[in-house]
């Protein structure tokens, strides 16, 4: 049976548009707020939620998401609470959920235990930013045995040999880092993305979603013409930091979603 993530990419392909993926840090600003934020984003047209589990040393993240992790940790967020948040989201929604975190909190919780508990909480997959593909076999085995997708990152600096490993170990989709560096908003898009998409397409038929540095509807529109999914993180976390209302979050999501149709016209909601 396909996972929610796999079904999503089938569906958006039929709708002739890119999938809209939003990153938020679970528990930012509080575990209670996260399900409401997810609901607002879903109303705004978000197709998949990357649910960040905060880690004290977020080396892949820029300042905006670092601060989000800080707020979530201060609110007492841990893996167990994130699983509770996922269950809460599942009470009202079938939106695909991808856990997005670092290796150490997952190791500490236990790989098999996390795989089983995440599946039971309605989570669909997992991405660990600091797990290299060379070391991924045990982790991938545990996640797949529980029926979870494993998504890996590919970067412009990745060699062809690494891209093949990323393709081998990824299910659901491959996450393309659109530029070298950490997460965060940028004024312009990188020209490194198009060649990366080409190189990755050559080794896999999985959907490709691009993130890192995509923060405006214009960026999203350009990326949607090249990739199967567009990830926006820091721009949304910055709004959460500002404590904007759910309707403002929804409106921002909507402004991005409107740019994702392959034909360039508004996608039907």
């Amino acid at each position: 049976m396909p996972t929610r993530i796999q079904s999503l990419f089938e569906r958006v392909k039929n709708e002739r548009r890119a999938a809209f993926i939003a990153y938020i840090t679970a528990g930012d600003p509080s575990p209670e707020r996260t399900p409401e934020i997810v609901a607002a984003l879903e109303r705004g047209g978000v197709d998949l939620i990357e649910l960040g589990v905060p880690f004290s040393e977020p080396i892949a993240d820029g300042p905006v998401i670092q601060r989000g992790a800080d707020r979530a940790l201060r609110a007492g967020t841990n893996v167990k609470k994130v699983l509770g948040i996922a269950r809460k989201i599942r009470e009202h929604s079938e939106i695909p959920i991808l856990l997005f975190t670092y290796l150490n909190p997952v190791l500490r919780y236990g790989l098999e235990r996390l795989a089983a508990d995440a599946k039971a909480a309605g989570i669909d997959g997992c991405l660990l930013t600091d797990l290299s593909v060379e070391e991924a076999e045990t982790y991938v085995g545990a996640m797949r045995a529980a029926g979870l997708d494993t998504v890996f990152l590919a970067a412009p600096t990745s060699t062809d040999r690494r891209l093949e490993l990323v393709a081998k170990y990824s299910t659901g989709f491959v996450y393309l880092v659109s530029r070298t560096g950490v997460t965060g908003e940028r004024a312009s898009l990188s020209d490194a993305l198009a060649p990366l998409i080409q190189r990755t397409r050559a080794v896999t038929s999985l959907p490709l979603a691009a993130g890192f540095g995509i923060s405006t509807p214009e960026h999203a529109g350009i990326v949607a013409k090249m990739a199967d999914g567009v990830v926006v993180g820091s721009a949304i976390v910055r709004l959460i930091e500002k404590n904007v209302s759910d309707s403002e979050l929804e409106a921002f999501a909507h402004s991005l979603r409107n740019k994702l149709a392959w034909s360039g016209v508004s996608a039907p909601l």
């Binding site: 880690f55 004290s56 040393e57 080396i59 940790l73 841990n78 893996v79 150490n104 909190p105 997952v106 190791l107 500490r108 919780y109 600091d130």
Partner: peptide, 15 residues
């Protein structure tokens, strides 16, 4: 920071 070793951490795996 990219290596596996003994790490001072809390029960949630936070450093």
């Amino acid at each position: 920071h990219g290596s596996q070793s003994y790490v001072l951490q809390d029960s949630d795996g936070q450093i």
